[in-house]
Every structure is written in structure tokens, then in C-alpha cells.
Computed example of a mutant assay.
Amino acid sequence: MLATLLSAAPHAPAQAATARTAPDDAMARFRALVQPQGKARVTAAVLDLDGTGREPVVYGDDSPYDTASIVKVDILAAALLQAQNAGHDLTAQERARATAMIERSDNAATNAMWRRIGLAPGLEAANKRLGLTSTKGGPGARWGLTQTTASDQIRLLRAVFDTAPAARATPTALDESSRTYIRTLMARVVGEQAWGVSVASGSGWALKNGWLQRSTTGLWDVNSIGQVTTRGHRYLVAVLSDGSTSMKDGVALVERAARAAVSSATAH
């Protein structure tokens, strides 16, 4: 299956939009509102899908973070690309695993799907076609240690959510059926996992969150990616963080960052 993915590329890869750093005044407001504590750090990226600009704005240092479970969206995208290339849909078993992986963040289902796509090499082959440029798959079975940047997560979200008119839409290797499938699952995450970027939404959201306590430090990686709708516009939002002393603190940090980043975007 990996060989199929590498050799068959009937669609153009997604364009890798160049991220731009938030202006100094916006960055200052962001930092004042977010205020990471101790060793914690956070980066947020936002793209207004219904605006005129096509580059995400990044708040913070756009450096690599562990994905934790947000990589599950990327894994599903890779599996769907492989199925497209083979000329068939996901099997019933694969669809059941995909549902568990996204809606409930089930790790056993993710382990199976990670093996199915060919581990890190399969993920990275798919990401070349999706336009991701700064994501490196985790070693061996450790998909949660995949490294990514906030701007790369916006590229992934654009491949799934960007439905702008064809003249300015981002080309993507995912067909419309695959895009709709991923969006649907991300809109159905279980209630106890509906935190994160959803706090910045006014009338709708679809998301995937990730959380991981690092055994080497005891500190937490907490991330959230997705689409939110507020004030009549759809925004893609990716918030990555690490170094929090507890998951609760990490969630609070991510939510402050999501609110601050989207608030700044809606002010323009």
C-alpha cells in the first residue's frame, strides 16, 4: 500500500501557504492574554477561510511540537489517500477504526491505522501530497511523538476544510468524499473531548484534540486543531502547547490561546 501511495499521485499536491507572523501589536496582545506559566510554551495559527488572505497568521514561535493525538486526523487523511489510489473505499473495519480514532480518540484503533498506512514513511508520503512541509512521523509505533508545527496543521486543515471557490481554493489530493468524511467525524467528537479551539466558536465547530504526559519530564503536551465558525466566518485554528504541569493547565492554556488568536483575527 505504501508503494501505491508513493507511485500514484493523480491529484496536484496542496499548495503550502506561507505563514506570516502576527504584527508586533497583535503578538503583544496575544501574550498578555495567554501568559504561559513556568516551562509552558504555546503557538497558535489562524486562517480566515472566508477572508481575502490565504496565509495563516502565526502567534508565537512556529517551531515543532509533539502532536499527541491530533496526528489522528493526519493518519486518517493518509489512509483515505491510499484507498483512493487503490480505487476503493475504506473497509468496514477501517471505517469503524477511523470513527473510534477521531470521535473517541481511541488509541488501539489508531495503532491499527498507523500500521495500515505504513507508519511514519506512509504518513510522510501522504503529507507531501497534502502540502505539509514541517511534519515528521514518530519513531516506530509512537505516532504520538510525530513532530509538527502550527502552520503545518493549518495546511492539513486546509486540505480538509477549504471549500472556497475553485479559482482560489487550495488544490488537494483528497477527493470530496474523503474531505467530507473527515469533517463529519471531527464534528462528532464525544462531549468530554469537545474542549480546545471550540471555545472560540460562535455557531459551529469541528475539531481534534491531543494530550500526552511526557515520561521524561512529567509535563504535558496539549494541542487542539479544527474549524470554528464565528461572526459569519469560518476560521481554521491550530494551537500547540507543551510544558504544562497538568492536563488541566494545558487545556486552559490552549483555550486562552485559541480565544486570543481568533479574537485578533476577527478584529481585522
Rank of each mutant, 00 (worst) to 15 (best):
P121F: 11
R129G: 15
A79S: 14
T4S: 11
A200P: 10
A159F: 02
Y65R: 09
V34D: 04
N127E: 15
G122L: 02
Q227Y: 01
S241I: 08
D61K: 09
T21I: 12
S69V: 10
G51Q: 13
P36F: 07
A9L: 00
Q82K: 13
M113H: 03
A22K: 08
A169M: 05
A173Q: 10
L76F: 10
I102N: 09
Q153G: 02
T180K: 10
A173S: 14
S203M: 08
A12S: 13
L49F: 11
M113L: 14
E124N: 14
G140V: 06
I117V: 15
L80N: 14
T266S: 15
L119C: 02
V262A: 06
D74F: 03
G250D: 13
L185W: 07
G38N: 12
A40F: 03
N127V: 00
I182R: 09
A19H: 09
S63K: 12
T217H: 02
D89C: 02
A167W: 01
D162L: 05
A32Q: 15
R214W: 14
Y181C: 02
S244A: 15
Y181H: 05
S7H: 06
V160P: 09
A109S: 14
A77D: 13
L185E: 06
Q93S: 13
L145T: 08
E176A: 15
P56L: 07
Y235L: 15
D24N: 08
P23K: 04
V228E: 14
S7M: 09
L253G: 12
A150N: 00
R29N: 08
T180H: 13
S246W: 03
A126N: 11
A261C: 05
A8G: 00
S201D: 08
S63F: 00
A17W: 10
T110Y: 11
S69K: 10
G53N: 11
V34M: 06
W211D: 13
R234S: 15
Q93K: 09
T135Q: 04
D249L: 04
H88V: 04
V228S: 11
A166H: 05
A8E: 13
L80M: 12
N107H: 05
Q84Y: 07
K208T: 03
T135R: 09
T266K: 12
R158S: 12
V222D: 11
T43H: 02
D25A: 15
A9E: 12
Q15M: 00
E255V: 02
Q82Y: 04
S134V: 00
A86H: 08
T172Q: 05
T172S: 15
R29P: 03
P56S: 07
I102Q: 09
T43L: 03
D62H: 00
W195E: 04
S203A: 15
S178R: 02
T91L: 08
A109Y: 06
